[in-house]
């Protein structure tokens, strides 16, 4: 690879967006570990990572607030690029082509493909569910304001949304590992022309058009 090739890169995420993303990512990991520690006895040992059971109980909801705020900023920035379009539904119908690495058979993709968009909405729904139910079950400050029936329901909802979110993020992380060249978009902020052309052709055309002006 010569230096000229290296220059052939497209900026996908500016530095502030990348920092924001990693705040969300790190707080998610901490939340998943501390939440799972309380979810299942077999995972209670994870509380050791946070300084014991009580510290886990104290820290978890606070980190939750950090994640919600950080994701709200990230989500607001990405909101418009995630609107579902007619071609996205066709893309979803051909999901088999995707998992079998026959991407050329799929409709063109903008900045995000339909799978990414669905993950985006799943995260939003889960975070709303987690925030609302999390406040209801937050014993130290808020639980006294709610009936025990509501607290019971919120406990179940919180665990459910937590599990769904963890599964969604596993898919998200796997996609980044599977589609080579993606991780760099969030670490260095750039992707290669070929990557953009292959995976997000409509977006590639859009941004390269802009570049020539």
């Amino acid at each position: 690879m010569n230096t000229k090739r290296k220059a052939e890169e497209i900026v996908r995420y500016e530095t502030p967006t990348r920092i924001n993303h990693w705040i969300v990512a790190i707080s998610f990991v901490l939340l998943a570990l501390s939440g799972l520690a309380l979810f299942h006895p077999a995972l209670f040992w994870l509380t050791n990572l946070f300084g014991g059971g009580s510290w886990t109980r104290i820290l978890h909801p606070l980190i939750g607030i950090v994640m919600v705020i950080a994701f709200a900023l990230l989500g607001a920035k990405m909101w418009h690029e995630n609107a579902m379009q007619p071609r996205d539904w066709q893309w979803l119908r051909q999901i088999k082509d995707l998992v079998n690495n026959r991407e050329d058979a799929l409709p063109e993709v903008g900045k995000y493909n339909a799978g990414q968009k669905l993950i985006f909405y799943t995260i939003i729904l889960c975070l709303i569910g987690l925030l609302l139910s999390g406040i209801v079950i937050w014993r130290a400050y808020f639980a006294v304001y709610f009936s025990v029936e509501l607290i019971r329901f919120a406990s179940l909802l919180h665990a459910f949304c937590g599990i769904v979110l963890i599964c969604a993020i596993i898919i998200h992380i796997y996609a980044a590992i599977w589609v080579k060249g993606s991780v760099r978009a969030m670490t260095r902020g750039t992707v290669s022309y070929g990557w953009a052309w292959k995976h997000h052709r409509a977006w590639f055309r859009e941004v390269t058009k802009g570049q020539q002006k």
Partner: peptide, 29 residues
């Protein structure tokens, strides 16, 4: 659910493999 999701990802990688951008794609771009 968590283990199954992770396992499906792992098996997909082992079975079907990564989705790479090769020199042809760069050329096409």
């Amino acid at each position: 659910a968590i283990f199954a999701t992770a396992a499906v990802g792992f098996l997909h990688y082992i079975g079907i493999g990564p989705n790479e951008t090769d020199e042809q794609d760069e050329e096409a771009a």
